[in-house]
């Protein structure tokens, strides 16, 4: 699916589900720090801390108050191995702290990146398995397309702005039920150096639209990438 079709699909989803009038939403922030360290023999370790905090939530038609609420923090560690010049396989583990609830998730990913004449494209196929003591295991199969377009020239260079757009489709299976989640995340990025990047944008997620009013989440995201 090309980007234009994906956007059209998303717009149709948003409008077709909003007219139900019962769609719920969350609005908040999603700051993340992403550390990467190259190891020997093509291995790399990635450590990410991401926190979710909401400011507003409820049904679209209600007048919901502005109310700060801390939700969770994720700690993710991935071990990546380059299997070709532009292909990487990763395995990892996510540890989620949500109040007094602890969530465990195992992760497997296959990532390949294309260098096109004026931008980069990265594809990611991933599977993850989520376990916690209070609900049934959840299994997800996901595909993400990420594109990075420099403001200037053909590659992102230090002290240069860029646009990054991610589009992801998550198939979720839990206790015999299926749900699809779609994510669209446009970011404005700034390359401080080749190893330090800062990104700011919207992380939009929609799910539960297959069999009822959709659930929308709008996160203001701030990502910091540091390669050691």
């Amino acid at each position: 699916m090309n980007t234009r079709k994906a956007l059209l699909f998303l717009v149709v989803l948003v409008f077709s589900t909003t007219i139900y009038g019962q769609s719920e939403y969350q609005f908040g922030i999603l700051p993340a720090i992403n550390l990467n360290k190259g190891l020997k023999q093509g291995y790399k370790i990635n450590f990410k801390v991401e926190s979710r905090q909401t400011f507003e939530q409820g049904l679209f038609e209600d007048d919901n108050p502005f109310e700060y609420d801390y939700i969770l923090t994720d700690f993710t560690t991935l071990l990546a191995k380059k299997v070709a010049y532009n292909k990487t396989v990763t395995v990892g583990y996510l540890f989620r702290v949500r109040g007094d609830q602890i969530v465990h998730r195992s992760i497997q990913q296959y990532i390949w990146t294309n260098n096109l004449p004026r931008f980069r494209l990265s594809h990611r196929i991933a599977a993850d398995q989520t376990f916690n003591s209070q609900s049934a295991p959840e299994f997800r199969l996901r595909y993400r397309l990420a594109s990075q377009i420099p403001f200037n020239g053909e590659t992102v260079d230090p002290k240069e702005f860029y646009v990054k757009v991610n589009n992801e489709y998550l198939n979720q299976f839990e206790s015999g039920s299926y749900d699809l989640e779609v994510r669209l995340t446009p970011f404005l990025g700034y390359s401080i150096t080749d190893k330090k990047k800062l990104e700011f944008g919207l992380d939009y997620r929609v799910n539960s639209f297959l069999d009822g009013p959709a659930s929308h989440r709008f996160w203001i995201a701030l990502n910091y990438y540091l390669s050691l």
Binding site: N36, A80, T113, R120, A146, Q148, D194, K197, Y225
Partner: peptide
Amino acid sequence: PKNVDNIEY
């Protein structure tokens, strides 16, 4: 090489 960590992770 250019660093592409931000579109891989």
